[in-house]
């Protein structure tokens, strides 16, 4: 009972102390039967942030400038989804490169290294805020391990599987796509990383490994970079990715 005594319930909202145990929206109080004004507007604000994230745009120039530090070619690519509205309704188009992008990739010299891809996904905000920082930690590790790198790719209106087409065009042996995840009410900036060994069009998600919820309040970038580096090494040495890779390592997240 020690804890109960320590947390004297507030007379208006005796359940306040339960907030310590969960991030759920509990102990909101009520106005009549309804949610009071303050928490109602807090909810609305969280939803506004998530909506803005869905419609946010990748800051391509800023990102390209920042990526110069890695001394790798940077390719700016597009999927076949012509607008955000179409992107949301036609995930199939978000997985395919448009013609200009295919030609741009075809002009590159084939490279059997690792291709690192940044795509807006469902939250460009997540990429704008987290991607460069993660690469700053990851790329030096890859270079120290003497791993070959393909050109860096920035993709607009992209879904995860667009990495397969990019990697196939470049002849890359492994792809890592950093992509904005579907924003939650309190996680508009959440980034995912998907790794695929020997990527080629037609693969499904069970061929991939995923690290999810990369953001300051979720999985911090430094930890994500460590996990990714570990995964890349394992994937290359065991020549596989996906379910088989996941099953053998407690370091990796469940999802």
């Amino acid at each position: 009972m020690a804890k109960l005594i320590k947390h004297q319930p507030h007379p208006d909202e005796p359940l306040n102390f339960l907030k310590e145990f969960t991030q759920a929206r509990i102990a909101l109080g009520s106005a009549g039967s309804s949610i009071p004004t303050k928490p109602a507007l807090e909810f609305k604000l969280a939803h506004a942030h998530a909506r803005d994230a869905v419609y946010s745009v990748m800051e391509v120039e800023t990102l390209a400038d920042a990526l110069e530090q890695f001394h790798l070619p940077v390719l700016h690519l597009y999927s076949q989804a012509a607008s955000r509205e179409q992107y949301l309704q036609r995930p199939d188009l978000g997985r395919l490169l448009d013609e200009t992008s295919v030609n741009r990739l075809a002009d590159q010299i084939a490279n059997d290294g690792i291709v690192l891809i940044l795509a807006d996904g469902l939250s460009a905000t997540a990429i704008n805020q987290n991607a460069v920082e993660l690469l700053q930690l990851l790329i030096p590790k890859l270079r120290a391990a003497k791993l070959k790198l393909a050109p860096l790719c920035l993709v607009e209106q992209g879904r995860v599987a667009i990495a397969d087409g990019i990697a196939a065009e470049l002849g890359a042996s492994l792809s890592v796509i950093l992509i904005g995840e579907r924003p939650g009410l309190s996680s508009a900036d959440s980034m995912g990383a998907y790794l695929t060994y020997m990527p080629k069009p037609g693969l499904t998600d069970d061929s991939r490994n995923c690290i999810s919820n990369i953001r300051p309040e979720g999985l911090p970038v430094a930890q994500a970079a460590d996990k990714l580096f570990y995964l890349i090494q394992e994937s290359l040495s065991r020549r596989l990715s996906g379910v088989a890779l996941k099953d053998n390592e407690g370091l990796l997240p469940d999802k």
Partner: peptide, 24 residues
Amino acid sequence: VPGSDDIMLNYQSTSFHDALYLRK
């Protein structure tokens, strides 16, 4: 769902308050 916000499945459903509204 507390305050309509399912923090595990990351989507919005109906809240405890919503059910009270409907009953009323």
